[in-house]
Write a protein that binds this DNA or RNA. Structure first.
Length: 110
DNA sequence: GCCATGACTCCGC
DNA sequence: CGCGGAGCCATGG
């Protein structure tokens, strides 16, 4: 039997993001033991139909929402994040002190 | 098997 | 800080 499908690990990593916090696609991939699969994470979220999946907590490495401005998805993601207390400015998370990537610590206490 | 596509990332300018 | 180019990886025609 397969030892945890990579897909299951990715979804688990996404579900593990605490409410009010965020993580990057690449970060999730790494947490799932799949470095370099950021695009796969994105595709997985796109095809996933689990309404309980906190996909809105996943952002790009620069702390911005991946969806293009004006898109309904982008608006919904921004809305959900704000509902959790995440400060956003022009689609970008302010709390993410990781200027380059949302590397680690995003989940830890500051 | 090659080519195109994408909720990505890194790097140089 | 914005842009363009290259690298990357899985999927589908």
């Amino acid at each position: 039997m397969a030892k945890s499908d990579p897909q299951a690990r990715i979804l688990a990593a996404v579900r593990a993001i605490p409410r009010g916090e965020v993580a990057g696609y690449g970060e999730i991939a790494r947490r799932a033991g799949l470095p370099g699969r950021a695009r796969w994470v994105a595709r997985l979220l796109a095809i996933s139909e689990d309404p309980a999946l906190p996909w809105h907590r996943v952002l790009r490495s620069d702390g911005r929402i991946a969806f293009p401005p004006g898109s309904a998805s982008r608006e919904e993601q921004a809305r959900r994040l704000r509902a959790e207390g995440v400060a956003l400015v022009d689609g970008r998370v302010q709390a993410a002190r990781a200027a380059r990537t949302l590397d680690a610590e995003v989940w830890g206490p500051r």
